[in-house]
Design a protein around this nucleic acid. Structure first.
Lengths: 333, 333
DNA sequence: GGTTCCGCCGCAATCGTTTGTAGTATCGGA
DNA sequence: TCCGATACTACAAACGATTGCGGCGGAACC
């Protein structure tokens, strides 16, 4: 130990710890620091954690690590936590609905100092709810209906507004919506936002203009778009609740012999990578996912530090990446 | 503690530990187990780790978490490690070349039981090299020139072979290669494989048929493809060292007024998501990344368990996803 | 009946820190 | 000279587990 090297025993601990260093003589501090440097001394995190009851680690639970969406969130979270000396434990909840709960329990057993949940759903399990008593917790990219847990989410209302207004400004009047599943927070939120914005821009807010896809994937998107277009053959634009659904709309529109961006404009949501390389490139609402991770980590640190954080949800403003899947409606011949 | 609840002191420890349970009377074991269950007792991992010198955690260092390529690797690693009670600490080395080293040091300070490195480069830093003394270590998706560290990598030779043979069977005879940077292990490896396979299938293995892109991105791909096609206007097919490079070739080919899959066939490498939705969809060599993660974690566990693992590299066989960017060469008019 | 052996359990040290408390030296004031 | 305050520093008890070793009982053997 550095203690042997320098001179004395546990004085070294105080000397090395900035918040207690004032107790020990400056000269001694320097001597200890020197010895520590020379010996390459590193405090043992386990011993320290055992005593202080902190592990300097936080758990991040992701519904599906393979989904490119979560990369930026993880990166954002990691970037700020590492800065403060925390480590990031990741949990991949891809084994069904209650897998997330078991991961939460694992994390609690490991005595993480905080927890960041990105699992979907509009309600949180009892496990998670009571975990909140034991550990600081922040939600990211999802929220709970009663806002009892701090959440960092994209502003879906604003995002859908960007899409709807963009289409309206291009001249579209018959706009439909391919929605995500209702039980997912983003599914219902974006649908409601769509209807609200339709009337805001002076169009008919008819629930019949909405078709719910079974899941956020290409196939269900095609199915939903076909259903929507058969009910309303005169639609000139579709707002999709998700990029993959938007790409699903591509297929539907093509199978009807129409041209994307001319006969029917399409917008996506999230702006995942490679959309700009599609033919045509997909106009999409861009959600600041990295920022989301950064903010989640920041509020988590605040919570851990004991600062009181308002439990509500923080909305991050999206932007619109305008590409070639949207254009003015074709003249009706 | 469960000890108070059950009956006695540290006998509980033995009773709960399967490998020492035989020392204590079966009846006592059951009583302890019962008490532990009732009290919801959980051993404190820090206390245990302090004594046993194991943290039951492993570090995974990724060059860029935002790259969709690494999602499956992480998922694979996580899936097997969690099974054995390990936690996964992730480190995102996106802050330049020596960031990975500092992450390795962080991990060592945390006393991880093992380390999985996915950082690129054909050589490993001194830091990493000497870290190998302190901790079990496995490389994934990269290897070192001297094979001194166990590595799980895709079989690039076989993969390029799939692409070249596929094109050859379609009838192509003038095939070029857009290579990755030489300093990256995959860059050089795939280039060498390309040249080797060209002569294997009875074509001219001319280094002049290879153009090196500056980096694995779309833009450099376009640049390289343009250079290649201006040198060899008669090429009917291009093997790209990477999907993004392949997509870069799309632009180059189009800008020359040629049709992809007809005038010029193109193959990618990695088979990242969404390639099937491109127009045309990109034929690509598919690398089993999840499997790669699984195997890396498995060998790491073997290393940790003290079994001796051959330090060489394990090659995972790729497959070929044939899509519409490749087709028989157009008849020369 | 006494000795040995064996199965089972408890004692106490240990891992490497943090931290409350006690101790020591130095100095100034009376 | 003695006392008290001040300014450090050392002592030792935690934190919660694992583990070598010694003890204690009963059974078996002579």
């Amino acid at each position: 130990m550095a203690r042997e090297a320098g001179v004395h025993i546990s004085t070294a601990s105080r000397a090395l710890n900035p918040s207690t260093a004032f107790i020990v003589h400056p000269v001694t501090v320097e001597r200890v620091a020197e010895a520590a440097r020379k010996l390459g001394y590193r405090p043992h995190p386990l011993a320290r954690g055992l005593r202080t009851n902190r592990t300097m680690s936080v758990g991040v639970i992701i519904p599906d690590v393979e989904n490119p969406l979560f990369g930026p969130i993880i990166a954002g979270v990691e970037s700020v936590l590492v800065e403060d000396g925390y480590s990031v434990l990741i949990g991949n909840a891809d084994r069904g609905p209650n897998h997330a709960d078991s991961l939460v329990e694992d994390m609690l057993e490991r005595h993480v100092d905080g927890l960041i949940l990105a699992t979907p759903g509009r309600v949180v399990s009892d496990t998670a709810r009571q975990a909140q008593r034991d550990v600081s917790m922040v939600l990211v990219n999802r929220s709970v209906d009663d806002d009892s847990i701090p959440a960092i989410v994209g502003d879906d209302h604003a995002g859908i507004g960007l899409a709807v207004r963009h289409l309206r400004e291009l001249g579209h009047e018959r706009i439909g919506h391919v929605a995500g599943p209702e039980w997912v927070s983003t599914g219902r939120g974006r649908r409601d936002a769509f209807l609200a914005w339709m009337s805001t821009v002076g169009l008919e807010a008819d629930i019949d203009l909405v078709e719910e896809a079974e899941w956020y994937q290409v196939e269900p998107g095609t199915t939903a778009a076909l259903a929507l277009l058969s009910r309303h053959p005169d639609l000139t634009a579709i707002v999709a609740a998700n990029d993959l659904l938007g790409l699903g709309c591509y297929r539907a529109v093509r199978s009807l012999g129409k041209v994307i961006g001319v006969d029917v404009s399409i917008t996506g949501y999230n702006d995942m990578p490679l959309l700009d390389l599609m033919q045509p490139s997909l106009t999409a609402v861009r959600v600041p996912y990295r920022r989301m991770g950064v903010d989640a980590a920041t509020t988590l640190l605040a919570l851990i530090a004991g600062e009181d954080v308002s439990p509500g949800r923080v909305l991050l403003s999206p932007t619109l990446a305008i590409r070639s899947s949207t254009g003015p409606p074709a003249d009706r011949g």
